[in-house]
């Protein structure tokens, strides 16, 4: 019993320490981004661009396919569910609102957490194990400025853009299926979608994606910096990073949605 309580206590302390570390990482990254140039140690735009390419542009194909599929799936389920009530035409509104407010940001967040979050943890963890992080420090390069800050800024720029692309492709997926079922053209479907959507719907998804971006970066970078135990440790941290990122994204999404629908 004593051991169990001690174990729970240790876990709680570790959790608090991790949250504190992640928060400091966020503050320090933003501090370097905004104040770095005054210390002659600015966050390089080239690094941000490089990260944005790796996180965003290269994720466009897979993100597009998945959002298109989710849109089509929603159309399928929606038409089937609304059929008994004769309200199939309402599927346009349902898909437009649910994709822009919810699904696009969530799907993109999960894809990027799995694809880029794991890569970030593995890269930083490997660098730590091979003393590259120490090498940065002795050269006089702050690892947070050099590694974390560009990833954070790139992620905060790219995830909203991917979400907007996901919005469009999700609706397009719904349009392609619905156009066959309801005898309407894809263009008509899309026009009706844009009519029913308000800027607030898109803003909800985009603002969620910024929160998801911060979660992915903080979890993946902090897990990378804390790697110990060689290649096995890198693997363990990478798995942990992906699982935690996706879990936090889903919980954050639930909390976000709760407050936005009040």
């Amino acid at each position: 019993m004593k051991k169990a309580i001690s174990h729970v206590g240790k876990l709680s302390l570790n959790a608090i320490e991790e949250v504190g570390y992640a928060f400091m990482l966020l503050v320090e990254s933003l501090e370097w981004f905004f104040l770095g140039k005054f210390r002659n140690q600015s966050v390089r735009l080239a690094h941000i661009f490089h990260e944005a390419m790796s996180i965003g542009v290269k994720a466009v194909p897979i993100a597009s396919i998945l959002c298109f599929s989710v849109g089509m799936m929603l159309a399928l389920q929606g038409l089937e569910t609304l059929k008994p009530y004769g309200a199939q035409s309402q599927v346009v509104t349902g898909i437009a609102v649910s994709v822009t407010r919810e699904f696009s940001a969530l799907i993109i967040g999960i894809i990027v957490a799995g694809r880029s979050g794991s890569a970030i943890t593995a890269r930083i963890g490997t660098m730590k194990e091979s003393q590259e992080i120490d090498a940065l420090r002795v050269i006089g390069i702050n690892p947070v400025r050099y590694l974390a800050a560009p990833i954070l800024i790139a992620m905060m720029l790219v995830l909203p853009l991917l979400t907007v692309i996901g919005d469009f492709l999700g609706m397009l997926g719904g349009a392609v299926y619905t156009s066959f079922e309801l005898n309407m053209t894809v263009a008509t479907y899309m026009n009706r979608s844009f009519e029913v959507l308000s800027i607030n719907d898109v803003a909800q998804g985009v603002s969620k994606s910024i929160v998801f971006a911060i979660i992915i970066v903080l979890v993946s970078v902090s897990n990378g910096f804390k790697v110990t135990g060689g290649s096995e440790g890198v693997g363990r941290s990478t798995t942990r990073s992906v699982v935690l990122s996706i879990s936090y994204i889903i919980v954050a999404d639930m909390i976000f949605t709760f407050f936005l629908t009040r």
Binding site: Q41, T126, M127, S130, Q131, E132, D134, A135, V138, I139, G140
Partner: peptide, 18 residues
Amino acid sequence: YEMRKQMGVAFQGGALFG
């Protein structure tokens, strides 16, 4: 940061950026 400009370090495994 200023001090590090006057120091050079070669690590055991090289620690070259891959």
